[in-house]
Design a protein around this nucleic acid. Structure first.
Lengths: 184, 184
DNA sequence: GGCTCCATGTAAGGAGTTACATGATTCA
DNA sequence: TGAATCATGTAACTCCTTACATGGAGCC
């Protein structure tokens, strides 16, 4: 038996969901991942089940089968060791978590000089603004539906919103730079 | 011969760098990736060389060996087809690029209820603030070194800065929520 | 009986990482 | 001559994805 040094973000995220939702089937988790707008993982069976299997082997979750259920539904639940792994995840927050994330729009902007005309460059920025604006609207409506409480779900949605508002401010500055001359 | 539908972000990023830096060795690219603070990829030989090999097979770059160089240094350069691939990358900016990115701090916050005391929760947020603040300082100094021109490099650095400033604003709101009651 | 969910998984494949391996050049 | 740097690449491994496969339960 071999054990890895560090768990992946996906593994910890699944473990956290199991801990949050209490005992439930893998299927339920999968659905929740699929419906969450903030999820970056595919939530397909092919990723969730192997992750749960790894968590089980590491003793972080238990799988309990109900003999009455002939579909083989198994309730997955976090163990005490699993809970401690989550606490440890919070305890040593590595320095790299302070870095800016991998933004696909920012990545592209590095190479915007490949667009030869200023109007092409401007069109790209406008398209980026539209995409971001659409997502902001969607987040705002989620936020409205969540009400006034200060639960974690509301706070993470708020975090996504602030990130996108920062991006919009940046895109405005880029547009502004483009009003004078093309980039590159 | 099989071809994938879509190229990965890493492949396009490497292709873009090749196009930007003109003909140069893979080694030079690797160094540049390693030194760039905004890079999310490992820039190890094991990732760069296979990517270049794939780009070559797709006809997006050429590799020219100099017979005089006995180290086997090869100059890699983007082809016209490669340039068009970059333009296409800009042309159809998919809707998902408008979404908020995968922020490790925001991911963790979903499960902050695992920290039982308000002071533990507060400590986590403070640590997140410190990490972010440190990176902001580093970006600001890069920005100062870049001067006043509106080149792509300056603009992308500015984008990272705006993202982190948005995060700081959010973390302040989280801290504020914590001054009243613990989360979860 | 058939359709839609619920619920489990496997198989094949690709991408990216770490670690290893090799050799040329330069310079003290 | 030895160390650092330039320069290439391979091997093994893990993770994640897509696509496929299977079967029970409930309902019309």
């Amino acid at each position: 038996m071999k054990s890895r040094k560090t768990m992946t973000e996906l593994e910890l995220c699944v473990l956290g969901s199991i801990w949050l939702r209490g005992p439930c089937s893998a299927y339920v988790l999968r659905r929740e991942f699929a419906e969450s707008s903030s999820s970056y993982w595919s939530s397909s069976a092919g990723s969730i089940y192997p992750v749960i299997e790894r968590l089980k082997r590491a003793g972080l979750v238990t799988l309990a089968a109900d003999p009455a259920d002939r579909r083989g539904t198994r309730a997955v639940a976090a163990t005490e060791k699993g809970r401690r792994a989550l606490v440890a995840w919070f305890a040593d927050l590595p320095a790299w978590t302070g870095k800016a994330t991998l933004d696909p729009i920012r990545t592209r902007l590095n190479f915007i000089a490949v667009l030869k005309s200023r109007s092409d460059q401007r069109r790209f920025v406008e398209r980026a603004q539209e995409n971001t604006r659409a997502e902001i609207a969607s987040l705002r409506s989620s936020l409205g539906a969540l009400g006034q409480d200060a639960g974690a779900e509301r706070l993470t949605t708020l975090g996504a919103l602030y990130e996108l508002e920062g991006r919009m401010k940046w895109l405005k500055a880029v547009r502004n730079a483009l009003s004078h001359r093309r980039i590159g």
